[in-house]
Amino acid sequence: MNSKLRLLVFLTPMLLFIGLGGFLLTGLFSDPTELDSALIGKPVPNFELPDLYNPDRTHTQSIIGGKPMLINVWATWCPTCYQEHSFLNELLATKDIYIIGLNYKDDSRAAAMNWLQDLGDPYQINLFDFSGLLALDLGVYGAPETFVVDSKGIIRYRHVGDLNARVWREKVGPVYYSLFDQ
């Protein structure tokens, strides 16, 4: 009995150490820039933003919902958005995905319009968020970011960083398609 107790006394710190070591080891491989969105399960915040092409036209939250869709946050000052853009075009062309573009604090309306003209416009609706109002309410902290929204307008997933074939196949696509089964 006594020797068992001694063994326990000496093994406990060892086990604690291994546990702590394992916990810290997983920390090495986690990406600290990937934050959970506080808005998962919550509706897209109310907004009132002008159209990118037409300053006189205003969009509100009524454009959200009705069917599963993506909201893609982008800007011309964002190099990763440039990388991402051809994949967004592909999503529209091959899979007919409904994407709303949220132009986030861009240098100018003209710069954003030129970009879409040159690279193609994968967005069904283009929102122009010059002061970052909606982006702030969405908790956007960088571009690109993509939100997956269900037909009731509830945010189901947020991806930070560029969308590409791998991210679509492994993360965003499955969430998006699961929304059609409900």
């Binding site: 934050l35 969105s37 506080a38 808005l39 702030l136 309410d137 908790g139 902290y141």
Partner: peptide, 8 residues
């Protein structure tokens, strides 16, 4: 701020 960016 927490409602938008989380406890972080």
């Amino acid at each position: 701020m927490k409602a938008r960016y989380g406890d972080f």
